[in-house]
Amino acid sequence: MTGQRVVVGVSGSLASLAALRAAVAEARESGRELTAVIAWETPEGRALSARNCNQEWIGRWREEARGRLEQAFDEALGGTPADVPVRKLAVRGKPGRVLSAVAAKEGHVLVVGARAEARWAPVRRYVRGHVQCPVLTVPGLVSPKRVVRELRRVAAEDFIRI
Rank of each mutant, 00 (worst) to 15 (best):
residue 103 A to N: 06
residue 87 R to S: 04
residue 71 Q to T: 14
residue 86 V to E: 07
residue 86 V to D: 07
residue 109 V to A: 01
residue 86 V to F: 10
residue 89 L to C: 06
residue 105 K to L: 06
residue 121 A to N: 15
residue 101 A to M: 14
residue 111 V to P: 01
residue 108 H to W: 00
residue 111 V to W: 00
residue 63 E to I: 05
residue 144 P to L: 07
residue 119 R to I: 04
residue 108 H to Y: 06
residue 142 V to T: 13
residue 112 V to W: 04
residue 126 Y to N: 14
residue 98 V to Q: 02
residue 107 G to K: 10
residue 149 R to N: 11
residue 135 V to E: 13
residue 88 K to H: 04
residue 147 V to S: 13
residue 122 P to I: 12
residue 100 S to P: 13
residue 113 G to C: 00
residue 118 A to H: 10
residue 107 G to C: 09
residue 130 H to F: 03
residue 97 R to D: 04
residue 126 Y to R: 11
residue 116 A to C: 05
residue 71 Q to N: 06
residue 134 P to L: 03
residue 131 V to A: 10
residue 69 L to T: 05
residue 115 R to F: 01
residue 67 G to H: 03
residue 143 S to K: 09
residue 68 R to G: 03
residue 135 V to Q: 12
residue 115 R to E: 09
residue 106 E to P: 04
residue 95 P to F: 01
residue 85 P to G: 03
residue 134 P to K: 11
residue 117 E to T: 12
residue 65 A to I: 00
residue 92 R to H: 10
residue 91 V to Y: 13
residue 131 V to Y: 08
residue 147 V to L: 15
residue 74 D to Q: 15
residue 128 R to G: 13
residue 76 A to G: 09
residue 121 A to C: 12
residue 130 H to N: 15
residue 93 G to R: 14
residue 64 E to A: 10
residue 67 G to C: 02
residue 142 V to L: 14
residue 83 D to P: 03
residue 110 L to R: 00
residue 123 V to H: 12
residue 129 G to F: 05
residue 124 R to I: 10
